[in-house]
Design a protein around this nucleic acid. Structure first.
Ligand SMILES: [Mn+2]
Ligand SMILES: [Mn+2]
Ligand SMILES: [Zn+2]
Ligand SMILES: [Zn+2]
Lengths: 142, 142
DNA sequence: GCATATAGTTAGACTTTGTCTAATAAATAG
DNA sequence: CTATTTATTAGACAAAGTCTAACTATATGC
């Protein structure tokens, strides 16, 4: 699953191809949700996606939005970003990068991986594998 | 508010002094909660604290546990750690350090600040101040 | 001490995010 | 077309956390 160069926004055929590449059956609901996510590199909550996808009929149920986002995350198509205790953000940019979180506005901004380096990650106890290293810079606007 | 050398566990008088140092009125409930938190450097959820504090009477209400943890965090006496979308952890160690999070067990381990360095934090737009830099290494057990 | 004002606690209703269930619908295979 | 599997759905449910309005404890002024 190499990271291809992606041109935003992804159109419908590109989204269908992308789902296929990640072993995801391209149903109507999944395509709709993916089209919202892959309009540009962004960070959206389940609730934002639910609202956006239901702006025009036919509508998608809450259960399906959650199921789909969970599936996308499991398959590695999107990345969960946990910075706010009240909701998960889904990141359509899965290439390695870090985040700046504006506490006051609840907005996330990307920090390219080559701009910020982490040194000295500790050796892990036997049988443990690293899932990821998250760097979050918390800022407030004031 | 210098970080004094702290000897764990903090006993009742030490906890009362600590609350005073942080401008917090030392009520019975706050002392009870602080004694649980400052038994050792650790990461506890509101729910864990609620259960622990109510193991022996008199009991403390859920509202007070949440109010108190919010107050402690606001005053800088404890640090919130956001790694799990389902609950906030409260860290009795407020000195600068990072975290290793075991996804499978939901447990947090400290990584001393001098063991792990972050380079290249981006310059912030005008009027923004950094609240903190969190590094979370997510690991899974098997 | 007593009266008053202020600050803290409480039960329980409420909200939000997310999960689960059991039924239905759509897609796939033979 | 039929059988089987996979996906979607409404709505019930759960868990974390907030809010309200009443109550209690503490502090302050006399
Ligand atoms: Mn939301
Ligand atoms: Mn809990
Ligand atoms: Zn991102
Ligand atoms: Zn810690």
């Amino acid at each position: 699953m190499e990271d291809e160069i992606r041109q935003w926004p992804l159109d419908r055929p590109a989204v269908i191809k992308l789902l296929g590449d990640y072993g995801i059956q391209p149903t109507q609901q999944r395509i709709d949700i993916a089209q919202i996510l892959f309009a540009c590199p962004q960070h959206l909550s389940a609730d934002q996606i639910l609202k956006t996808v239901n702006e025009s009929p036919p509508s998608v149920s809450k259960a399906t939005v959650y199921n789909t986002l969970g599936l996308f995350a499991d398959k590695g198509l999107v990345r969960q970003v946990i910075v706010d205790p009240s909701r998960v953000f889904y990141d359509s940019n899965t290439s390695q990068h870090h985040h700046l979180y504006d506490i006051d506005h609840g907005t996330l901004t990307d920090i390219p991986a080559d701009q910020l380096t982490v040194n000295g990650a500790p050796q892990l106890p036997d049988g443990m594998i690293t899932e990821g290293i998250d760097v979050i810079i918390r800022v407030r606007s004031e």
